[in-house]
Structure formats: C-alpha cells, structure tokens
Design a protein around this nucleic acid. Structure first.
Lengths: 342, 342
DNA sequence: GTGAAAGCGCTAACAT
DNA sequence: ATGTTAGCGCTTTCAC
C-alpha cells in the first residue's frame, strides 16, 4: 500500500492523495472525505513516515542525547523526570521523541543526525563525536546541565545551590563533614580522593557542587580536607550503598554526610538505618535534586530542590521554538528544602 | 554533504562510497581507507539514515509501544525497568529504540509503522488502532503482559502469583483484607467497586490478579466482599496516597492491605507511618512487582518479585530473532518475597 | 574492483 | 481544484 497505488485505485493523482492527508485546503471537502474513507477501507493509513521525512527534510522528531548508555535514561530518577518533562511538551506539539546515546558505537552512528529536527543534549559531552556532528547540522541544539559556546541552554546554579545547603549544614553545628561525590574523577573505583587526582579542573556539575561545599566550609571555618571527599563512579544506588557503608565505618563517625545526589543520600540513609545510627541526631544527611523518593523516605531527606520536570519542559520548548527568544541561556532556580534528615 | 557530492569530490562513483561504508569487501582496502579518511576530512559522517532506511526498507530500530502517554514510560518504576532491559539488548545489537505511544493523536500516527523493523507492545491494547496497524505490517511483534492470538509474548502468571501472595497472607492469620486495585474498572474516580461495575470480564492484568486474591480468600475461608475492593485509576503514587488515606480511615481497620503494585503499597506504608499505624503488627501490607524501592523502604515490602528487566531483555531478544523459536509464548517465573511489611 | 542507473515513497513547484 | 513531474539521498543490480 503506497500513496501511488492508492491513487491508482481511486483514479486520482498522487498529489491529490498527498494533499488529502497534508493540506486539506487544497481540495474539496467532498473529495477529501471520500479519499480518506477509501484509504481506510483499503488499509492505507497515511504516507510512509520515512519517505515523507526524506522528501521534506523534516522528521517531526526531537533527539535527546545523553552521554551514558540508553539504560541510564530509565534508571536514574533525575533523568526520568527530565524526560517526563520533555515528553510532555513534545507530545503536546506532536513531535516524536528519539532517544540517542552519545556512547553509540563508532560505526553505528552514521547519519543519525538526520533523524531529528533538533537536539536536546543532556550532560557534559567533552570529546563526544556525535555531539560535534549534531552541532554541524545547524539544527537547533539546546544543552542542559552544561554550556557550550553560545548555544541556548538550561541550567541551575550548581555552585550556589551547593554552597547554600552546605552553609545551612555548617550553621546548624556540623563540624566533621564527609562529601559523597559523583564522577569527581575519572576512575571506576569508589573511595577517597587523592591529592593530585582533583587537579584537572573540569567544568562538570560535580565539580561545581564540590566547589560550593568547599567554599561554604571555608566560610564557616569548618575543616573539609581532601580525604573527607569520596568519589563514586556513577549515580547508582548499588555503588552508593558500598560507599556509604565504608563512610559509616569511619571512626569517629562524621557528623554529617553531604551527598551530591538524592540517590546517594538515600543509600546513606539505608545504611545508617541498618547500623542503627540515628538520623539526624547522630548524623545529618543531605542530598541534591529532590527526587520523589526524597520526600517519601523516612526520615525524609533535606536536599536541594531542582525542578527536573520543568527543566525538561523548558529544554523542549527551546528546541521547538527555534526563535531568537529561545537562544538564551536559562538558569532555573533551586531551593533548599529542609526535611527530617538534618 | 551527501554521498553524491562526496563521490564527486573524490572522483569515484556513488556506489563506491556506499560500499566503503556498507560493504568493505566490495573494494580494495587501500581505496576504502582513503575514502573514509577523506570523508572525515570533508565532514561526511556516513550515509543519511533516512534515505538509507527508505531505500533498504529497514530502519534498524525497534518500536516499543505503550498504551499510555509517553511520560508514563519514565514515571512508572516497572515500565522503567522493563525499558532498561530492552535498551540493554538493543544496544548490544546496535538497534535504535523508538518510543511509541498508543495514545498518539489520531492524525499524527500516519505511517509511523514504517519507522521500526519490529515492535514490542507493552500492556493490553484493546481497540488500539495503532496496534492493529502494526500487526498489519507483518513485521515481528512481541506482546508483553498480554496475549494476542498466536503472536509471541512474554508474560507472568498473574493469577497464580496473586493467589500465592494472598494465600500466604491469609495463612498468617489475616481475616479482614482490603484489596487496592489498579484500573479494575473504567473510571477516573478512586473508591470502592460497586456491584455491577465489575461485570464486564476483561482479561486485564488487574483482573487476573484480583481473581487470584479472590480465589485465595475463598480457599482460606476469608471473607473478601466487593466493598473491600478499591479501584485506583492509575498506578501513581499521588492517587495511591489518596486511596490509602481513605482505606486507613476505615473503622475497624483492615488487618491487611493487598496492593496490586508496589507503587500503591509504598503509598500505604507512607500513610500508615504518618498515622502511626504499626506495620506489620497492626496492619500487614503486600505489593506486587518488587520495584527497587520495595527493598529499600522501611519496613521493607513483602511482594511478588517479577524480574521486569529480564522481561524487557526477553521481549527484545524475541523481536530481534524473528526465528521460529522466538514465536513462542513465554511465561516468566515470579516469586513470593517476604519482607518486613507482613 | 568500479561505475551507471533505477527506484524506495513521497511532496511541492508548476502546469492545467 | 486537480494532475504532472522532478528529485530528496541512498542502495543494489547489472554491466564493464
């Protein structure tokens, strides 16, 4: 069933069939209705999407690109919320959502850029080839959680938010903090940071947050030496449990654990619970993100609320409206949300 | 940059460029290497995916179709795990993942079927037009969590699993159960089921689970009348909280709440915690699915473990290997996982 | 080992 | 209001 065969069957030209589907004003109501009815009868459900895309040079799809493997999109609560926001807006605008992985294997990525009309790129893409290629297409690109040149972006102020929550903590009397960081260095191991590892100054989210914590400590006169800073290679509960387990074996116990994500913080809460460490009496715990579980868990989690769904919506709106007002860099607000864990 | 223009620039035919990318054996090593190098220099990153798809009639993408809006994919923990499993297998096999919503608006869905080489259809699709169209394509289709004619499928035995967990509960002395069901009837309201509403006998997951609970009750001589059965229109924490709140206001309190999902069960646990109802002493709570949060929450949740990730993997493997051994209906095992909440 | 050419299914400019 | 036609970028058969 192709447009052509349908045209033949109905004794009209292909253009007319095409118009019946795409430009109702180009033919009489009567004819259009008749065509549509016949098509349904024949089992023709509209123009082939691929051919249409090729011809129009437009796919009605927006690509969302992450540097991690695809599975991460579904596993991480923050990524999930972000995607929820995107999906919502795209659906309203009748666009398809194409999930792209920057970790795509070298040979597989050929020509993928042409499948989408615009791209939302989530998370830093140093050296990612696919990202560079996407930029070359000249199609709308919005970066999220990082900045690239003059491209529009959606971000939060990671430094300030981190500063604020640490500041709050140090103000409530914490003096022996531990920081649980994510991807602070390029290593698969879990553990303390060693001096020179932190040397390379990348502009990652983690680094910004760390700087916020560090400055807040300095401000408050709290000692936060390198060996109190831990690295977890990925934001994942399993790994976080392991790190938490080690951290809560320290003697003396820290009086607070500052986590770079709620996923990590919930793991700390779990371990503390198992070991009968009382939160917040003996130990305060704070996270970052405000994922849904943060308010459900007991004790509920003090954290930095960032509206990840809104981030997704915002990013989607920006790619869709290629207009100049969308060419801006947006900084979404965050908020310190104090709950039971501190 | 098109294959043609590259061919012109390098003074070879388009076929040769195409071969350089797709069939290394069709030209000399030397020439191929040279072409590839030149292409990189010119900024040509491989054949346009759309044109390639059109010409080959193959997209290297697998469509995953859900009856709910796209956002649901990312919001529901079970769907997320399922997708994680799919993504894993597809990535290994270098296929793209195309998220499709059965709730696609009428006019938007034209020709989408052609975008994927095969389909995984998740959750019952009564009357869904897109589903019917997908079937018409003749491409591989795997149904998950429901069956359709002779198509291959991946399922669990919902009846038996539900029977088992209820049986266990009634054996541990519960006599005043409440069931919290999801989409038992076609209504947006939260509340008890009224007699005739349940009349229409659909083959939904919920209905199978309900039948399992009901038969287990009968078996154990426990009274489980219709007015102890509640309906929640969607598997979502918010709605579940509301239902839980009403259920836990009953007097006398039920001695157990049987939930059709862990999302609902965690909501019950939350409300119980707020009201200082002691679980499991005063109230036992069980769920279904075994989502990650089920083992983390306190008290941890007794539930039916189904390996949703494996379900995804299985489904993906089936679509990919169109072979006859994949034409079977698979029933994945489930397991009663007893934890603190009962 | 390499090139010429047909055509995948469609849309849009132009002609009638 | 409807029809004719070129061509989107590619792959593949066939000829050389």
């Amino acid at each position: 069933m192709t447009l052509k065969s349908v045209a033949a069957a109905l004794n009209v030209s292909t253009a007319t069939i095409s118009n019946a589907f795409n430009r109702p004003d180009q033919l009489s109501q009567a004819l259009r209705r008749k065509i549509l009815t016949e098509c349904k009868k024949l089992g023709y459900h509209g123009p082939n999407a691929t051919a249409r895309t090729l011809r129009r040079g437009q796919s009605d799809a927006i690509g969302v690109m992450l540097s991690d493997p695809l599975a991460y999109y579904f596993t991480d609560p923050v990524a999930s919320q972000f995607l929820t926001g995107i999906a919502e807006v795209l659906e309203q605008n009748r666009k398809q959502l194409l999930l792209l992985s920057g970790a795509e294997s070298e040979d597989r990525k050929g020509g993928i850029e042409s499948l989408a009309d615009g791209f939302i790129v989530y998370g830093s893409q140093d050296e990612n080839q696919l990202f560079m290629r996407v930029l070359e297409t000249g199609k709308p690109v919005v970066t999220v959680d990082f900045d690239y040149k003059d491209y529009p972006s959606v971000n939060i102020d990671n430094y300030q938010a981190a500063f604020n929550i640490a500041h709050y903590l140090f103000n409530s009397g914490c003096t022996r903090p531990v920081v649980l960081g994510i991807r602070l260095i390029d290593s698969k191991r879990i553990g303390r940071i060693v001096e020179d590892e932190l040397f390379e100054e990348r502009e990652s989210i983690s680094r910004r947050r760390l700087n916020g914590y560090l400055d807040a400590a300095k401000d408050a006169g709290v000692d936060l030496p390198l060996q109190q800073i831990w690295h977890i290679p990925q934001n994942n509960h399993q790994l976080a449990l392991q790190a938490a387990s080690e951290v809560l074996s320290m003697y003396p116990l820290p009086d607070c654990v500052i986590c770079m994500s709620d996923v990590v913080a919930t793991a700390v809460l779990n371990v503390a619970h198992d070991r009968k460490i009382r939160v917040p009496d003996q130990l305060k715990v704070v996270g970052f993100d405000d994922i849904p579980e943060a308010s459900r868990i007991s004790p509920s989690l003090t954290t930095v609320s960032q509206h990840s769904i809104e981030k997704g919506r915002m990013a989607a709106k920006k790619v869709l409206s290629g207009g100049p007002q969308a060419k801006t860099k947006t900084l979404l607000p965050t908020q310190l949300t104090v709950r039971q864990s501190s």
